[in-house]
Amino acid sequence: MTNTAVAAETEGPIVNLQSVHKWYGEFHVLRDINLAVDKGEVLVICGPSGSGKSTMIRCINRLEEYQKGLITVDGIALNNDVKNIDAIRREVGMVFQSFNLFPHLTVLQNLTLAPIWVRKTPKKEAEESAMYFLERVKIPEQADKFPGQLSGGQQQRVAIARSLCMRPKIMLFDEPTSALDPEMIKEVLDTMVELAREGMTMLCVTHEMGFARTVARRVLFMDGGEIIEQNEPDEFFKNPQSERTKLFLSQVLH
């Protein structure tokens, strides 16, 4: 409680990683990551597979542990304190590559579950807010269906709405369009663009360079567990600094 109060007063990055290191056994996945994300900033993270980009954003809501350095989210230090982890997870929404909707619950139940059980919102209120977000992702008519009855694009939009129902301050996107058929990618990206324009703080791991050009304030390139370079999108695409970035961009942009 006091943590969040302090956070509201202090101006500064809402997500802050200070020389973060992570190992999987002997394998050094994240090497000295320093990153500050401001409130309302849209950050696109790209890089070849195995570069540690997913691992990095998964550290931010503690789906992965890190062994060295410090991550603070909204002024709360992310350490082994369960209370802090819970507090951070309430503020950080996450969208996965494989949607991870709950298959045994209807779309509406998927959306209201966390608000009811975690935020203790009354059921009726939670359902109203769920319908509001379903309308925003343009599928209110699917509320009573089960996830298995929806297309991939619809499922991913439900997953975005599910995160938004918790009214997060930060949204993490872990390759949200990689598991989708080409014609469905657009509907998910449109939703994300809209969200970005409304001022949501977003960290997106994605290879959708069009999305990066349209809304990102900063593009970040990772390789081998390190941040190789970061820049404004225009500069990043026009004028990549390192050889590795140039090689990567040539492969992604054809």
Partner: peptide, 27 residues
């Protein structure tokens, strides 16, 4: 149960018993 289900429940801030009772055990 795929790990994604555990991670989704975690990322929504559900506690251990809530996660088990509402998400994992029913499936």
């Amino acid at each position: 149960i795929p790990t994604g289900q555990f991670e989704a429940a975690d990322s929504l801030g559900l506690g251990y018993w809530q996660k088990m009772r509402l998400i994992i055990l029913p499936q």
